[in-house]
């Protein structure tokens, strides 16, 4: 809707589709998409001709035009990100350019919660922790709680206290998983810096008595692509068509693909990712898409948000009093030192 093409240097992006001025026109040396990901929904395929033509068109566009558009997109992205969730596209509906679909599985069964899978539409370049916060705000379960070290302590207010505490049987902590090859992989990365690719499935499971290692149990909901709501029942599958890897790419760059499940994009080897100007086409197809569940929630999600109501004014008065005391002591100490000299 907002923009027609973007060149996103993912390394430089903050939130959303803020574009860096990458060496755009020189980089599009791979006009054809990466090899097929075997598990990707077949609905992808019919889009490709339009991508190819658009890309050719894109290649002919002047550098100045691209730069101007990138600037506009950057501005729009900033506005969007500052406006918070203003661009809350539906997970089954049309996506604007620069948005991705991801599924977040949260399993707090061991804390009395349930296991849930939530499909979310977020700006490309969203990090794992931003995704968690987004989920909390969309489900109304509050934002996740972090420890001062940055360790994730609680999701949906569970557990109410403690943070990755060690007991005699092991650690009780939120283990981080991501989908790779249809299986859960134990995540070794920092959710604050890990950027999500389109179609990514992320999982969090509260592990009781875990070792804090890859042997810890995985979420009870498997990372199946069926967790994504159907986009368009009318789309016919076509064979042999390329799409993007499910998470990460061969270049090590998170591939910031565009609209979920319906389009493909190419991860360029230079570390820049091209987001194709497919918006018009995509929305044209997807306006007909119908899907009921939004967001998909399997099991129950605890609605207990940690309600913290402190009287901040009272705290400031206490702090002022203590620092007044410290100032008196320091002054007295200074006077004493002067006198003794």
């Amino acid at each position: 809707m907002l923009h027609h093409k973007t060149v996103v240097g993912l390394r430089k992006v903050g939130l959303g589709s803020v574009g860096g001025l990458g060496p755009w026109s020189g980089r599009v040396s791979h006009p054809f998409p990466a090899p097929t990901h075997p598990e990707w929904p077949r609905t992808v395929n019919h889009q490709l001709p339009s991508i190819a033509t658009k890309r050719l068109h894109q290649m002919r566009a002047s550098r100045a035009m691209a730069a101007a558009l990138v600037g506009v997109v950057a501005l729009a992205g900033m506005l969007m990100s500052s406006a918070g969730n203003a661009s809350a596209s539906s997970c089954s509906g049309p996506l604007t350019n620069g948005e991705i679909r991801v599924v977040l599985v949260v399993d707090s069964s061991d804390l009395g919660g349930g296991a849930s899978a939530t499909c979310l539409v977020v700006p490309a370049g969203t990090t794992g922790s931003q995704l968690l916060a987004r989920r909390g705000s969309e489900l109304g379960t509050g934002s996740p709680r972090y420890g001062s070290s940055g360790l994730l302590c609680a999701i949906d207010g569970r557990p109410a206290t403690g943070c990755g505490d060690k007991s005699s049987s092991g650690f009780g902590y939120w283990a981080y998983f991501f989908e790779a090859g249809g299986n859960w992989n134990y995540g070794n990365s920092n959710p604050f810096t890990k950027r999500l690719a389109d179609g990514a499935i992320e999982g969090w499971r509260f592990v009781v008595g875990g070792c804090g290692c890859g042997q810890d149990p995985t979420p009870r909901i498997g990372p199946s692509l069926s967790l994504f709501p159907a986009l368009s029942p009318a789309l016919a599958p076509a064979p042999e068509l390329p799409s993007l890897p499910a998470s990460g790419s061969a270049t090590g760059t998170p591939s910031g693909a565009s609209t979920g499940g319906t389009t493909a994009s190419t991860a360029l080897s230079g570390g820049d990712v091209t987001i194709d100007p497919i918006t018009g086409a995509t929305s044209g197809v997807l306006t007909s898409a119908t899907s009921a569940v939004e967001p998909v929630v399997v099991g129950d999600v605890a609605l207990a948000a940690s309600s913290s109501t402190h009287s901040t004014a009272g705290r400031w008065i206490g702090i002022a009093a203590v620092f007044g005391l410290i100032a008196v002591m320091a002054g007295g100490a200074w006077v004493q030192t002067r006198r003794s000299r």
């Binding site: 709680r145 972090y146 001062s148 940055g150 402190h310 705290r315 206490g318 702090i319």
Partner: peptide, 14 residues
């Protein structure tokens, strides 16, 4: 141990 995430004004225990 005042929380730093979310950042809060530290309470002063009397």
């Amino acid at each position: 141990s005042p929380s730093t995430n979310p950042l809060e004004v530290p309470a002063v225990p009397f």
